[in-house]
Design a protein around this nucleic acid. Structure first.
Lengths: 137, 137
DNA sequence: TCATTTTATGCAACAATGTTTCATTTAGCT
DNA sequence: AGCTAAATGAAACATTGTTGCATAAAATGA
């Protein structure tokens, strides 16, 4: 486990367990968003349920965020900002490659601030691009 | 069945079957996007698989489009433009209410045109807002 | 209207994913 | 080392997505 992972867990009031260390380490070495299935592939034989709860916990504590990409599968990526318990500050766009299926965070592009229709209030705005990534182009 | 539904099916080269007429009629009376589960609730006892294939066919033929809303469930809404086989022209934003769970199309707001990172090419861009709708506010 | 052809349906079956309950194990603290 | 709160792992179940195949129905043309 990297020092970084240990520090991240500690700073988010999370106990250091094997599963959490392994999962977080994997996120730290990957630039693209990971689905639960991706994680299972990379981690080998791990308990599906524990992994599911680990991801939920990480998301609740602001360690990772859901990467909306228009597919029906949930994917997660590391938060780059100081997100905390129940608070996320990730406003970047996500890019989904229709060829390789990878989903990556595009920090350089922020979701636009748009005026909602009358009577509506907006708490988050997401921008999702689909197409071909640099690897597949 | 409304005349509208019959005309829509015909103009998209689709046979007029009971399921298709019922499903399309329901979309025509609803302003929000519908999940497969929503449709089953409203249609009563219908075959799950046939409904699944009906939605897939409608989507392929440009009658309905997937309404991305950040939830893990697939939702569909009527195309407002002249979408055809494999061609969709829906570039509007979608709004998801975190209270009532409804997802609606916001025709007034278009997904922005953004310059992708170098090496990337973009085929579609989606804009999703989350918050409270006018009913729940 | 009826026979033919093409397409849609309904059923069975299965894979993947999401989720809860509960007994057991483990991490963090004293 | 021992205590306590929390995490894990197993079982079990719900929901959703998906394919193959025999049957039924829609469109077409005589």
């Amino acid at each position: 486990m990297t020092v970084n992972a240990q520090h991240l867990l500690k700073s988010h009031q999370l106990r250091l367990t094997d599963m959490r260390k392994k999962v977080l380490d994997l996120f730290l070495t990957r630039s693209e968003a990971l689905s639960q299935n991706d994680l299972e592939q990379h981690l080998g034989k791990v308990d599906r349920i524990t992994l599911y709860r680990t991801l939920r916990t990480f998301e609740e504590q602001g360690l990772i965020h859901k990467a909306m990409d228009g597919t029906d599968k949930q994917k997660y990526a590391l938060c780059q900002h100081d997100c905390g318990q129940g608070v996320h500050h990730d406003h970047h766009a996500h890019f989904h490659c229709d060829t390789c299926g990878k989903t990556i965070c595009v920090e350089a592009i922020a979701a636009p601030v748009v005026a909602p229709p009358p009577g509506f209030s907006v708490s988050e705005t997401h921008l999702v691009m689909r197409g071909q990534c640099d690897q597949c182009n």
